[in-house]
Amino acid sequence: MAELIAPIAGNVWKILVAEGDKVELDDEMIILEALKMETPIYCDEGGTVTAIKVKEGDAVNEGDVLAVID
């Protein structure tokens, strides 16, 4: 199981995957928005998205879990 972690604080701008989706290494999964910049979060490890812990518009802190991949 791998967790997708927010590297910075910001707002969830876009969620590009859904629970149950198969993802591969380096796929773009979630885009955070902070300081007028988009920070894409990429998949570190291929697998199936088992949980998405945030929704678009949420504010997140650095270190928050955004999604889980199994």
């Binding site: 591969e24 290494l25 380096d26 796929d27 773009e28 990429y42 998949c43």
Partner: peptide, 8 residues
């Protein structure tokens, strides 16, 4: 570049 980086 990794395969995934090239792909996306």
């Amino acid at each position: 570049l990794r395969e995934g980086e090239v792909r996306r």
